[in-house]
Design a protein around this nucleic acid. Structure first.
Length: 425
RNA sequence: GGAGAGAUGGGAGAGUGGCUGAAUCCAACGGUUUGCUAAACCGUCGUACUCUGUAAGGGGUACCGCGAGUUCGAAUCUCGCUCUCUCCGCCA
């Protein structure tokens, strides 16, 4: 959520920022509503001050045996006026809140301005030694490989739940579990994260806190009977760990990592992009979440992106880093790097991770603050998160990039001790 | 699922209609004292919004789980909701 005071004081910055993000200009509307709001506040508070003052006099008058009926009548009227003003105030505040909840975050100044994904900027790429984009032998895609080697059974997954619910079988399941454990261990032991295993069903307040609601509500599963949402990412429960809290400056930066299954309805998306693992309703992801002081958050974003990259380097998976342009940035993000891994069968890059700095956008919604040691004042914290990484897309790259001409798959070295086997097939 | 009890500041815990933004204790922070530690003593010690001031600051309002109601006046009374705890049942 954007800060009303910031909008009031920097209308042109916000206007341009919203334009860059392909969002509706709400500046004038907010400023007008905010003026109304403050005028109601000063009127109502004036009356309340009067009411409190008179109320304090009443016991004294009563004690002195004076008649208070005239005062009672007057105060009754004041009370009515107050509740009238209060309800008007509430109405205005709800309007403001509603607009701001639907208004995206502004991009950081280092983000390239652009309309759509075509204007994202490739920052760097990393390719394993001897890697070639062209392949001499025929490359099987992950669906064919998974079927041939008995690792994945999309048909039975569909029977059990519906399309987009993959079933991992035998060594496919083991490989998946190995991958999750390897990523968690790396982040815990090499990158300094603390592991969290959060609930995967969360309440509405949590979904609101990280910004999935109200904007993305249609993409979420919802269990009506209990008012709970299956999480679309562990970002939601892990960021909400500190909702409504004031953290100590000395504890920052807080770095959490957690594995969870992720559930997405992906309403309205089917066709070519939905083959196999490319778009599924349930997938596994290891997520990194940081709570940072504002002045450090962009360094933390770089570090977090590197943490995700280290996983891919260790797995010997070719990848590239994109800096998203303003128009392609998600609702809550101020800056975001996408990490894409190479799929030789699809002959294209696939998004496997997204590392974002939300600055104070989520913190303001979720009311997550920290107390500065010098000023002692609470201030909104900056939140960041990044996939470290999503296994489904990663599995595509691992299977396809490590296949032998005979159609076997060599397990990446770092996963071998987790798997207990070195080659599949 | 059934029965009961409860929700007050960082924690414990008073407070049953005006003198309570909230006693007291603990923790924390600053200071005095001290060879060091401890103790003792003094002080500070919620958050948000708003007005005012260049600022330091000052004024006002709201908040005792959440929401509504009664009243001139609500932490205190009434209703609804949420959550927590205890007991019973069921259960991985």
């Amino acid at each position: 959520m954007l800060d009303v005071k910031f909008i009031r004081e920097n209308p042109d910055v916000v206007r341009q920022g919203l334009l860059n993000k392909n969002a509706k200009d709400i500046v004038d509307e907010i400023i007008a509503l905010d003026e109304q709001r403050r005028s109601f506040i000063s009127k109502t508070e004036e009356l309340k001050a009067k009411k409190n003052q008179v109320s304090a006099e009443i016991p004294k008058l009563k004690k002195a045996g004076q008649d208070t009926s005239a005062i009672f009548a007057e105060m009754k009227q004041v009370g009515d006026e107050i509740s009238n003003l209060d309800s008007q105030l509430k109405e205005v505040e709800e309007k403001i809140d509603n607009i701001l909840r639907h208004t995206p975050n502004l991009a950081h100044s280092s983000v390239p301005v652009g309309k759509s994904a075509e204007e994202n900027v490739e920052v760097r790429r990393w390719l394993p030694e001897g890697f070639k984009f062209e392949n001499d032998s025929k490359v099987l895609d992950h669906v064919e490989l998974g079927k041939k080697l008995g690792l994945l059974d999309f048909e039975r997954g569909t029977k059990i739940s519906g399309s987009g619910f993959p079933l991992y079988t035998s060594r496919g399941a083991t490989l998946e579990r190995a991958l999750i454990n390897f990523m968690l261990d790396t982040h815990i032991n090499n990158h300094g994260y603390t592991e969290m295993m959060p609930p995967v069903l969360v309440n509405r307040d949590s979904m609101r806190g990280t910004g999935q609601i109200p904007k993305m509500e249609e993409d979420m599963y919802f269990i009506e009977k209990d008012g709970l949402y299956p999480i679309p990412t562990a970002e939601v429960p892990i960021t909400n760990i500190h909702r409504e809290e004031i953290l100590a400056e000395k504890d920052l930066t807080i770095k959490y990592v957690g594995y969870s299954p992720c559930f997405r309805r992906e309403a309205g998306s089917y066709g070519k992009e939905s083959k196999g693992f490319l778009r599924v309703h349930q997938f596994n992801k290891v997520e990194m979440v940081k709570f940072s002081k504002p002045e450090n958050s962009y360094d933390e974003l770089e570090a977090m992106t590197n943490d995700a990259e280290n996983i891919l380097k260790a797995l010997n998976v070719p990848y590239r880093i994109l800096m998203l342009c303003t128009g392609d940035l998600s609702f809550s993000a101020a800056k975001c790097y996408d990490i894409e891994t190479w799929s030789p069968a699809e002959n294209k890059w696939l998004e496997a991770s997204s590392c974002s700095n939300f600055e104070a956008f989520q913190a303001r919604r979720a009311n997550i603050r920290y107390r500065r040691e010098d000023t002692k004042k609470p201030e909104f914290i900056h939140t960041l998160n990044g996939s470290g990484l999503a296994t489904s897309r990663l599995m595509v790259s691992i299977l396809e990039n490590n296949q032998t001409p005979e159609g076997k798959v060599i397990v990446p070295k770092v996963l071998q001790k987790y798997c207990g086997f070195e080659i599949i097939g």
